[in-house]
Amino acid sequence: MADSYGAPGGGGSSRGLSLATTAALFLAWWGVTAAGWVEPLFLPGPGAVLDRFLEVVEEGFGGATMVEHIWASLSRVGLAFLLAVATAVPVGVLMGMSRVARGILDPPLEFYRPIPPLAYLPLMVIWFGIGELTKIVVIYLAIFAPMALNARAGVRSVPIEQIHAAYSMGASRLQVVWHVILRGAMPEILTGMRIGLGFGWTTLVAAELIAAQAGLGAMIQQASDFLVSDVVIMGIVVIGTIAYLSDLAMRYLERVLTPWKGKV
């Protein structure tokens, strides 16, 4: 069935346009570099970047192969993400449920949330050293706030009728939280996870500024120290691709877990 007239975002799939845009960007990149309008130092062509990618896959760069770089970054973001899911969702739910929790937790959360991770990175190094812990804490903090705030909003969005209905069927308070509020808040909780994951990738390079042996962010920084711009661009493309794929996975999870979203 076609979208109804005037529905926001109506008019069918946007996939064709997305593919066309991607192709046009690649074509422009290739055209500009192949014509020799830009020095390869400033912008190497797609071919050079691809060659460099294959070379790093086989031989490595900065003391680690591509798989090791990807694995290092993926495990940092993944671990920070899982820690955030385990803590930010309960905190957000608590804030949605309880006036006391909201009152206590709102100021610290809203205070640190807009601060760029690079601003508190030195402090993290002083507190937690230059090891893995600091990197994971920095990524974790970036993910925590949006996830907690969305979980809180999700709790508040549960229709009061559903909560009343459960109580009228003999539910206890705990049962209402488990069977109604947590499930009703799922769409927003998943949105928070999706936004949080994006923030995690955004913060990766900052987190890997400090003494990282491997990692896509570390690879980009080493490359920039030596002006190896094809590795810089290749790292950006790899991070962007992984972040995009993880976003697609989250969207898939949303469709599977909350098929009613936007239909009630």
């Binding site: 009728e161 559903q162 009343h164 109580y167 069927m169 499930r183 009703g184 799922m186 009613w260």
Partner: peptide
């Protein structure tokens, strides 16, 4: 307080969509 001895039917929004 509410209890299972009084069943309630609401105007809307009261079914669990999951």
């Amino acid at each position: 307080g509410p209890g299972a001895d009084r069943g309630v039917v609401f105007q809307r929004n009261a079914l669990m969509p999951w």
